[in-house]
């Protein structure tokens, strides 16, 4: 092989790998990215049961019922409440009246089955996605934590 051919072989090989990787990354992104949704958008977006997304809102006061490791509570944006269900240990900072972000999907009954609960790390921590969305939509104006 000449110098030029060698170089072309290598370049062609590399480009095909890069191209394959780009396609692969794009496909992976579209199939795994989860939308961030507040309760009042759950209806309007017509999310199918089983489709993974992140639900963000405030844990409604006096709605948290727990038996050992089974938790049921309502997540609200002061307009719509969504029932949520979680089995496991709640993070230390999960409290009623505070923001929470849940990862999971709706079940056939329309309850949000959370696989993961994200509460605040410390008192300065405001889930940014949620703060932005609450502010933009003017949800829960009196809720100091969400701003």
């Amino acid at each position: 092989m000449t110098r030029k051919q060698k170089r072309l072989t290598i370049i062609a090989g590399l480009s095909s790998v890069v191209l394959a990787a780009v396609v692969f990354i794009a496909l992976a992104m579209s199939s795994t990215a989860a939308f961030f949704v507040v309760p009042s958008e759950v209806q309007e977006r017509q999310l199918a049961a089983g489709q993974a997304f992140r639900l963000g809102g405030i844990v409604k006061s006096d709605s948290w019922k727990q038996t050992d490791t089974v938790h049921d509570f309502l997540v609200t944006d002061c307009i719509v409440d969504v029932a949520a269900h979680f089995e496991g240990i709640m993070p230390d900072l999960f409290r009623e009246g505070q923001e929470v972000i849940l990862e999971g999907a709706l079940n056939a009954q329309g309850t949000f089955e959370a696989t993961n609960v994200l509460a605040k790390h410390d008192e300065n921590y405001v889930p940014k996605d949620m703060a932005d969305k609450f502010e933009e939509k003017g949800l829960c104006p009196g809720h100091t934590d969400a701003t």
Partner: peptide
């Protein structure tokens, strides 16, 4: 707002 997590 989307989140790209461990699955990706």
């Amino acid at each position: 707002k989307i989140s790209v997590g461990a699955p990706f």
